[in-house]
Design a protein around this nucleic acid. Sequence first.
DNA 1: CCCAAAAGTGAACAGCGCTTACACAAGATA
DNA 2: TATCTTGTGTAAGCGCTGTTCACTTTTGGG
Lengths: 208, 208
Amino acid sequence: MGQVIKLKRGELREALLDYAMNAVEHGTIEVMSLRQAARDLGVSSGAVYRHFADKESLLHEVTMEGFLDLKARFRAIRPEDDPATSLEQVMGRLHQIAETYIGFALERTAMWHMMFGRIGAACRDQMIQDPEMSHYTPFDVVMACLQEFHNLGGTSKELTEADVRFCWSAVHGAADLAQSGARLDADQIEQIISDTHIRNMRALGYKG
Amino acid sequence: MGQVIKLKRGELREALLDYAMNAVEHGTIEVMSLRQAARDLGVSSGAVYRHFADKESLLHEVTMEGFLDLKARFRAIRPEDDPATSLEQVMGRLHQIAETYIGFALERTAMWHMMFGRIGAACRDQMIQDPEMSHYTPFDVVMACLQEFHNLGGTSKELTEADVRFCWSAVHGAADLAQSGARLDADQIEQIISDTHIRNMRALGYKG
DNA sequence: CCCAAAAGTGAACAGCGCTTACACAAGATA
DNA sequence: TATCTTGTGTAAGCGCTGTTCACTTTTGGG
């Protein structure tokens, strides 16, 4: 963790966020201490509190980055002002959503656990308040896509919130399984993603 | 936490387990400290280490109780020497499994998080070693039941491990959703359970 | 150039997990 | 019954943590 370059005054905040992000990436966030962080960054332990009220605040901000990353990934699949025009397109997007979500859980496992654990709860509460973010919670993304799916005639039955919940929980459960199953190879992961997608479609009454 | 009765010599181990179990039930296990526990039990802090190698060991043992509870609940649904004889029966059992698992997550949320979080990982590893327990991991229970379901002609297609994974992850995801969704009432929970069950059956090719 | 605001210092506080040296109780053995 | 061994609890201490606070340094706008 040898931070060679001495920080210039005012750079500490960003440096701390970087440091914590790095700890998440290396799976050591759970044992990270602010004091050690300060030492590694060549700064006194008290300095941290000029930028974060407490440790929780730092973790909160780091976790928020995870949601922003996921939001960006979802946005790439389903741009704001580009509604799907064909059933194939929206089907493809729904598949991509599952792929993206499960991929995120695999790629950024530690972050994913923070996002859907204790710390993330506060982030999710905060996101609901912010209209900029609230449409990009995973649940809402699935809901919007399923609505399009329905509008384009993918399913004749009325779309209920229970349907959305079911599809979302299937994807979330698959992500959890994929992430925790140490012995799953790429093909098995791909199969989980496809199964989840296909069976979600069938559950909605799609005849493909 | 006023422990009034003074512990008799030799009772500390059980008292510590009780204390930790209580903390789990009250959702304070994450902030529980061994020192405070010792104080509350009227004992010196070093005494704890006569009974547990470290804090992790205590938590491990407590978490194991959760798996034993879940095992007992599963066992009640599907006794060891009582194979299902009809399709209705095995269907009923599969529904009960989903019900039980999701019910457990709702009823013992903190325990459930321990079981499927970092601490539980060690427990699950340990369970695989023990033949007495390994057949009662949630995954294995689902697998055994699906096998019976297949044997009794519930589905014509061959049963793959991917099918089991899918069904199990749907139940697990539903449990996670039910537990995290603060605003779900009893009816909605019941619907999640039914949906998960019915759609799992359909995913297996059951025509009901 | 000055000075208030922002940023960083370092000592201190209380609490943590854990270790070690010691004291004592109780059951087994002679 | 006297001794020995083993298990249990004590007290003090180590090194760490998050957090606070009085203090100094730096810096950029009037």
